[in-house]
Design a protein around this nucleic acid. Structure first.
Length: 269
DNA sequence: TTCCGATGGCCAC
DNA sequence: TGGCCCTCGGAAC
């Protein structure tokens, strides 16, 4: 689940429903017992998302950092919550809502300095209002990695995962294997806009739906997974733009999907 | 019903 | 490079 869109969506929901509430915290699994003890009894002051990282500030300056990783999950209960699973790392409970967090890559309390350090290493997040496209452009072009590799580097641009990478490069008609250093301003503008709009829509809707994905039959309003993407996970199927079979290749041990025809622009512009 | 791979990223080797 | 975290959707049975 968790690319930047999911994290921003969680932050919006938590801001709307949880800020100002007092929480009790515990760690049914036991791996965050000490942190939960320090959180317990405090009100939630603010929630912020940066890339794939989520920051909850509690009163008294206590800061919770969560990164969901691949299998992390947050469950929300507005009324009575069921017993947490044995793997539940953190349970945050108020009279109004309860959260169950399980499987996170990171769930820790951070000092203000540690949080600032972590955030200073994150690249521009297209969903953050202060995001600077020109800084993102410079960061992306640094070094010699292929564009597809640079896009997953959270220190260059943050919040982009494997689905967004494939769909945004396809929308922007950019060749994924060209060195990112060859990216030209016009190509970057298309890429940034594609990332921004895909992330924004996905943060609102809760999942990624590519605008060029084959139209779903109206009879089936709840699009199935394979109908939501233009190229991601569609190896061998027809490109929705030109009909060419979608390519799949392994790049830095992540699967990369692209149309070998419409993403073969001469010069990365 | 069961099983497997993944929308991450760190760490040990 | 592989293990881990240990969830979830979708495919296989």
């Amino acid at each position: 689940m968790p690319e930047g869109n999911i994290i921003h969506r969680l932050a919006r929901i938590h801001r709307r429903w949880l800020v100002g509430r007092d929480f009790t915290a515990d760690s049914p699994q036991g791996r965050f017992s000490e942190g939960a003890r320090r959180l317990s009894g405090r009100a939630l002051v603010s929630v912020d998302a940066h890339g794939k990282h989520l920051f909850h500030h509690f009163e008294g300056g206590v800061r919770l950092h969560i990164h969901l990783g691949l299998v992390g999950n947050v469950k929300h209960y507005l009324t009575r919550a069921p017993p947490p699973s044995p793997a539940c790392r953190l349970r945050l409970a108020s009279p109004h809502a309860t959260l169950h967090l399980s499987g996170p890559q990171a769930c820790e309390l951070l000092s203000p300095q540690a949080e600032a350090e972590l955030r200073s290493r994150l690249g521009e997040d297209p969903l953050r209002p202060e995001a600077s496209p020109s800084r993102a452009f410079e960061a992306l072009r640094r070094g010699r990695s292929p564009l597809a590799v640079a896009l997953l580097d959270q220190e260059r641009i943050s919040g982009v995962g494997n689905i967004l990478r494939a769909e945004a490069l396809f929308l922007a008609r950019l060749p994924p294997l060209r060195p990112a250093s060859e990216l030209r301003p016009a190509g970057f503008e298309r890429l940034w806009e594609a990332l921004r709009s895909l992330l924004e829509d996905a943060a609102r809707d809760g999942r990624i739906v590519a605008p060029h994905a084959p139209p779903a039959p109206w009879q089936r309003p709840d699009r199935r997974r394979e109908d939501r993407f233009s190229v991601y996970d569609r190896a061998g199927q027809s490109c929705p733009r030109c009909g060419t079979p979608i390519s799949r290749l392994e790049l830095a041990s992540r699967a990369l999907f692209f149309c070998p025809r419409c993403q073969k622009t001469p010069g990365v512009s």
